[in-house]
């Protein structure tokens, strides 16, 4: 079991091409923790903005009558991948892990697999 800080650190060190990561509470849009990013990539802005992305998708599924849950959301940019993984389990509902990757260095399949492992180890 790993805490928030350790899990985010694990995400950015073990996943190739990682630019930054955040653990976000999408009931409030606030980040529980962030790592990486920088002056030109503000992860608190990303946390708030991607909260709207997650909420919009949840709402769309409600409107479509889909009784299912979101496992992850992938956003592909010209030079980056953004991965959003919704957490499940005791004490982890309402949270998502957000990971920004450099497209040229990242392996998407591996990144998803590792993010899954990090989620399972995470204890909030």
């Amino acid at each position: 079991m790993a805490n928030t800080e350790a899990s985010l650190k694990e995400a950015t060190t073990s996943i190739d091409g990682s630019i930054g990561a955040a653990l976000v509470d999408y009931t409030s849009g606030m980040a529980l923790g962030t790592i990486g990013g920088g002056k030109d990539f503000d992860l608190t802005v990303a946390a708030a903005g991607n909260t709207d992305v997650v909420r919009a998708k949840v709402r769309t599924m409600e409107l479509l009558g889909l009784k299912d849950e979101i496992e992850d959301i992938l956003i592909t940019l010209g030079s980056q991948y953004h991965l959003i993984r919704l957490l499940k389990g005791r004490g982890k509902n309402g949270l998502f892990l957000y990971l920004a990757l450099d497209k040229s260095r990242a392996n998407l399949a591996m990144a998803r697999h590792q993010l899954n492992r990090i989620e399972n180890d995470l204890e909030v």
């Binding site: 009931t27 409030s28 849009g29 980040a31 608190t44 802005v45 708030a48 909260t51 709207d52």
Partner: peptide, 10 residues
């Protein structure tokens, strides 16, 4: 009550 507080702050 369902406000995105992160965005509210920003």
């Amino acid at each position: 009550p369902r406000t995105n507080v992160g965005r509210l702050h920003l």
